[in-house]
Design a protein around this nucleic acid. Structure first.
Lengths: 343, 343
DNA sequence: AGCGACCTGTGAACCGGTAAAGCCGTAATT
DNA sequence: AATTACGGCTTTACCGGTTCACAGGTCGCT
């Protein structure tokens, strides 16, 4: 991994402009101490020579880095499938770009690898901070990374994220809203197809779901934990619909599974929403391109990502930040939910 | 953007192990010149102190970087929607991770911004090389970046990519195969919903499509250029189906638009595939979760990404590489294609 | 004993910047 | 006139590694 050779450095620019390295540095960092004339001359020379300061050298001496890290620990094919992350990343980017900061991305296989990577990135001063996502109950990253002093922002409920400032959505309320909405439509048997059981937000949603169902006096609710992908979503839907006491409404933990569920329903001869109501989560564009369109608990994922990035900047800059909740996902009724059959 | 403070450096490790900085460096780079005993002592101390070499300092002095850059120039919402890029990125990552290299990602608004970014990244020695995607006809990046000496790999047909080593799929053949397949099913009026007209591969596909149609003696084909998103896909489909001489088969340039097209068809009362055959491109999981499932020109996007990364490594390491074609997308018939109505 | 080869390790130069102290001439203050 | 203030730039000391010439010590060989 070698460069081709003779690249221009600050010294060349300084020499050509007839000033010292220091002057060039001052000029390029828009600091006082250089006259306007000199400044312009320096910039002219830099342009002429095609010089830009070496980020490497700069961050070595200034102890500043313009890169933040994000490690994603999900199966590759799921990442491709689920619109959530790209949306989220683009939200992050929108804020980073403003500050001409870049995102260092790495897909990892497990949390141990993620921990090792973060340590390497941080100790190696490669990143200014990190974004941590997909928190689990008793997440090993909390004890492992907390002591590092690495600026980080955690995406997840504060209950899960230790001392890391958290940015999260109030999933419990959202789940409750979903259930209440379906109950209001007359549904008495509502099932839920959730994400991986070890994921923190799955636990939170599962609990809120059960609580709300009990509270509303609905029938005991069936919940199935899945791996978040369309195959498992389809299988879970099939299982639910084959049962004697099949539900009249199903809530999904993401949109992929909801779409898959709609397919299964059609295949099994159920009409959505007449026979069966479906409610998705996350609400990417995916929910709008199917027929019928999918009702969903929607939130602005792009904005979510942007907010996360903003909090990270605060942390990095030493601004005291507790993190905060972003707007709760709210119900967007579309074509896949309707009054319960025979209601 | 400051560090918290007293981080361990090579000097601390050297002192604690009773050797010089040089020895530690040699040990950590697995170079000869240090005895086994000393080596082990150094490693022990490093572990004890929690030290890892600073990537920044290392790359400054050794002129090596373990980061490659990727700038994506597409509207954010499309990136989230289209499974292609995440698949592609995960393929890239799979190869990078093996070499403990990371991916620097940035979303840009236009090619000028991308050019500026690449220059900055390269001159700033922040990246070892770059991956360039979405080539247009007479792409401005070719003249602008070619002279930089920056190792890069271009994703696109060599006709478009100047002197950059290219990795590409043979879209022309794939389009031809698609058309022949539909013709064999008895379709005489086949339309195509393509991507943005200025994108190089759109042009290639459009031309190949027209050629094949002519060659097979089919009716003059209607082609519509779109922005790749589901709205435009839906609109294009509607336009096609409203025409007096509506097609009996439509080929789409990605899967998003095909899914949207299927929705429009259903909404307009056409049954897929009895009244209308639909054929998607890229074939992400998306094609398998709809009903009917979508026939598609499928290729292994993950592998594509991996191959791109491999070529980039060759270029970076000075291995003489011309780049090469990856397997041509091949037809995967599913439920959305059938013999032409009344054929 | 003398010499070279080998092994292990040291020290200093360097990578390309930043930061802070210092220096010089002129203007404002007292 | 002497003192201070400041703008404008230079100098120098880092930042945390890598690299390379070279120094001692050990060993084998003549």
């Amino acid at each position: 991994m070698s460069g081709t050779g003779e690249r221009v450095t600050i010294k060349d620019v300084a020499a050509r402009a007839g000033v010292s390295k220091g002057a060039v540095s001052l000029a390029f960092n828009h600091k006082p101490g250089v006259s306007q004339a000199t400044r312009e001359r320096i910039f002219a020379v830099a342009r002429e020579l095609g010089w830009a300061p070496s980020a490497t050298a700069r961050s070595l001496s200034s102890q500043r880095v313009d890169i933040v890290g994000l490690a994603l620990c999900r199966p590759a094919r799921l990442l491709g499938l689920e619109p959530f992350y790209m949306d989220f990343i683009s939200g992050i980017e929108s804020v980073l770009a403003e500050r001409s900061c870049s995102l260092l991305l790495r897909l990892v296989r497990d949390l141990d690898e993620e921990i090792a990577l973060c340590k390497e990135w941080w100790r190696g001063r490669m990143i200014a901070g990190a974004i941590l996502v997909d928190f689990r109950e008793d997440d090993p990253r909390v004890p492992a990374l907390q002591g590092l002093g690495m600026p980080a922002v955690a995406v997840g409920h504060p209950r899960l994220t230790g001392t890391f400032p958290a940015v999260w959505t109030d999933d419990a309320s959202a789940v409750a809203e979903a259930v209440r909405y379906l109950a209001a439509l007359g549904h008495r048997r509502i099932a839920r197809v959730g994400g991986p059981a070890d994921l923190g937000h799955s636990v939170i949603r599962a609990r809120a779901f059960a609580d709300t169902v009990r509270q509303l006096g609905l029938e005991e609710a069936r919940q199935i934990a899945t791996g978040f992908d369309e195959k498992e979503g389809a299988r879970a839907t099939r299982t639910l619909l084959l049962a004697a006491d099949r539900p009249t409404a199903i809530v999904y933990d993401n949109d992929i599974m909801a779409v898959a569920g709609a397919g299964v329903a059609a295949e099994m001869g159920f009409t959505v929403p007449d026979d069966l109501s479906l409610l998705a989560w996350d609400d990417s564009q995916l929910c709008r391109i199917t027929h019928p369109t999918l009702s969903a608990m929607s939130h602005d994922v792009h904005h979510f990502g942007a907010e996360v990035a903003r909090v990270l900047f605060d942390v990095v800059n030493g601004v005291d930040t507790q993190g905060h909740q972003v707007p709760t996902p709210s119900l967007t009724p579309r074509g896949s939910t309707a009054p319960a059959p025979g209601g």
